[in-house]
């Protein structure tokens, strides 16, 4: 199992190739060509297997009746859309959606502000103890969220923040990944332009706003997407901190919905579909950025 010697494979991502390309040198290439198609077929079949759960939950969500009562299982959609309206009416979904979007938007906004400011400080400015502070922030990555549940519950209780939006926003209002990414962008950009602006008398905030922010815009997009999705998907935190359904986000709503209606598989599947569809659309529209973000997170911070 290895890379085939097709011209396409060899023409990409090889900086270290020394001599002339060996393209079309005959010999093994022909032998590899059959393997290329086998490889494509195997990859597609495996990918299709990964998508089976997506297909099945859709089939159940449009099946007639509420449960599955006998074999053989239904494996083709029956287009019984009534399950969706039933599931929709069984719970306060608009509220959950609104809460989720509001919390996610606020978290993203807060994260962008904190990341840009701190990233600028770490990437451009110089001050005593900078390295120590950066190390302190990076060490935050070592703390598992689960271990924070206990003390943060006590703290939120003391600050009277339980059952509020604040407790869903503030603790996630800063991102190590975000700070690190903005800092990297600043370190790799030509900073002379900022010095020139300083010579012309621009203050630091002006430099940051007019030169820094436009320069790190791609980083901001990555941070925004990642924080938004993480906030949308969060469950453990709001499950512990927010018991008031009018403040709960979508995933907590979905979990409690299924606890209450666990026997109604059709409604449950319909709810899974319509709660997950928006975030999947976001993903599919922005998949390039997503994957880049994942790689960056993997390569640099996580």
């Amino acid at each position: 199992m290895t890379l085939p010697l097709t011209s396409r494979a060899s023409s990409r991502g090889h900086k270290l190739r020394g001599g002339a390309p060996r393209r079309g040198s005959g010999g093994p290439v022909g032998a590899w060509r059959g393997w290329t198609w086998t490889r494509r077929l195997v990859a597609l079949l495996l990918a299709a297997a990964f998508l089976v759960p997506f297909y099945w939950v859709f089939v159940i969500s449009v099946q007639p009746g509420t449960t599955i009562s006998s074999w053989p299982l239904n494996l083709v959609p029956q287009w019984h859309w009534a399950n969706y309206s039933r599931a929709w009416d069984l719970d306060t979904w608009p509220r959950y959606f609104a809460n989720t979007v509001f919390v996610a938007a606020c978290t993203v906004a807060l994260c962008l502000v904190t990341s840009v400011l701190a990233g600028f400080a770490f990437g451009v400015l110089r001050f005593r103890g900078k390295k120590v502070l950066m190390g302190l922030i990076l060490s935050v990555l070592m703390v598992p969220t689960v271990t924070l549940i206990v003390p943060d519950f006590v703290i939120a209780n003391e600050l009277h923040l339980l059952n509020t939006y604040w407790v869903q926003i503030l603790p996630f209002g800063s991102s190590v990944f975000g700070i690190f990414l903005v800092r990297q962008f600043f370190l790799t950009m030509p900073q002379e332009i900022m010095d020139a602006a300083a010579v012309d008398g621009a203050g630091r905030l002006r430099i940051l706003w007019h030169i820094g922010v436009p320069a790190v815009r791609p980083a901001l997009l990555l941070i925004g997407i990642n924080v938004f999705v993480a906030s949308w998907n969060s469950f453990l935190w709001p499950q512990v901190m927010v018991t008031d359904p009018s403040k709960q986000p979508i995933e907590v709503g979905l979990a409690s919905f299924t606890t209450d209606n666990g026997t109604d598989w059709s409604a449950m599947s319909a709810a899974v579909c319509f709660t997950t569809l928006p975030i999947m659309l976001v993903f599919l529209l922005l998949q390039r950025q997503f994957i880049r973000g994942a790689m960056t997170a993997a390569g640099s911070v996580k």
Partner: peptide, 9 residues
Amino acid sequence: FVLPALLVF
């Protein structure tokens, strides 16, 4: 500049 982030953490 670092303060807001540090405050959250």
